[in-house]
Design a protein around this nucleic acid. Structure first.
Lengths: 204, 204
DNA sequence: GTCTATACCCCGATAGAC
DNA sequence: GTCTATCGGGGTATAGAC
């Protein structure tokens, strides 16, 4: 089918755009760079997308589509583990390709929201979705008696705030010996203290 | 003196660059835009700076120079108030010009650190400085018996994490009714609970 | 110190062949 | 579906007059 082939090409273009973004950064990203990464000519891109902006938005939409969706584990897994695993996928997302530099790319795209309304809408919804998912998990944990009886909405908003801070710091600062502990430990300690659980984290 | 005049021109160029950044965003910022904002010709900029990048870095250095320095209030002010006022200046910085959109500009510059080592170094140091300043304040508060006896270094790192998250959210998402409370309240509640103080915030 | 003019390059996008 | 060739425009940076 032509459609399938078209979809595959679109997927290939997205991957190429992702790689080009990693290599050159948003500021220096050009159609030529994407085409080189794709191994095809520039003009081919215009058979699938109307403009450069169109390509970028398609990448963004595809990237945040699955990002931050509830992993919904089997029923015998504790809510604590489910929450923990969920947060891990946010901070160290499953490999998109070889290297998991998704956070850096996502951040570069996100900052376009400062001037671009289309981007702003998408990240507003993304944060919202994250807060709702985490709120639900905490509430389930409270009902199950696993967590202390806290204001789930408030905690979830705080967690999303921390996650965003972590992404920004992780992508824009060098490793810093002055940090008392890794940012991921800080998030887990916070949850530990707030929810009354005891997160054990695998160090990296 | 020619030097003084030169410094004044440099300052004017920084202000023009700041305004141009606000109006066009980092991605669309050009020498021509800066010159228009300055009310002078493009080539004049090259009498004061070697390149466009040079202009941007100069703006960055000047901006973060004063940013996050201890306000060091008079001795009769409580440490709680000093800390509170300090955090306020970070989140709603003193007017640079008319509109205080410094956070958006600072964020756009910061994200260049994803690909640019010069930027990364500067923001690593900035975060470091912030953590140290806040750690000192908390420790002074503990010594004075104003705060509970907590791990100041850890709390400070957490606060910087939250501040960075707030900046990112504030600049890249629309106002969101699903938020339980403003992000500033969330920061103050966190400090309240952690330090055992009782922050009262002026709502906006 | 500040200008005009211009060199030179790269970019996004299109036309049209195969 | 994919290519080569090319157009028009805007970008950074420089030369040289005033």
């Amino acid at each position: 089918m032509t459609e399938v082939s078209g979809d595959e090409t679109r997927a290939a273009i997205r991957r190429a755009t992702f790689q080009a973004l990693r290599r050159h950064g948003y500021a220096n990203l050009s159609i030529a760079h994407i085409a080189t990464e794709l191994g095809k000519s520039k003009s081919l891109l215009y058979s699938y997308y109307e403009s450069k902006d169109d390509v970028l938005v398609a990448l963004l939409d595809h990237t945040i589509e699955g990002y931050g969706s509830d992993p919904s584990l089997s029923a015998d897994t504790s809510i604590e583990d489910t929450l923990k695993q969920f947060l891990e996928t946010l901070l160290v997302p499953p490999d998109v390709d070889e290297e998991s530099e998704l956070i850096a790319v996502l951040l570069e795209l996100r900052v376009q929201a400062v001037s671009d309304i289309a981007y702003r809408e998408r990240f507003t919804i993304l944060d919202q979705r994250l807060r709702i998912t985490i709120t639900d998990m905490i509430e389930r944990g409270i009902e199950a008696g696993e967590f202390a009886s806290v204001d789930a909405t408030r905690i979830a908003a705080h967690v999303v705030l921390i996650i965003n801070g972590m992404m920004l710091q992780q992508a824009t600062t060098a490793a810093d010996a002055s940090m008392p502990t890794g940012p991921r430990q800080m998030l887990y300690s916070y949850l530990d203290e707030t929810l009354g659980t005891n997160y054990v984290v695998d160090r990296r």
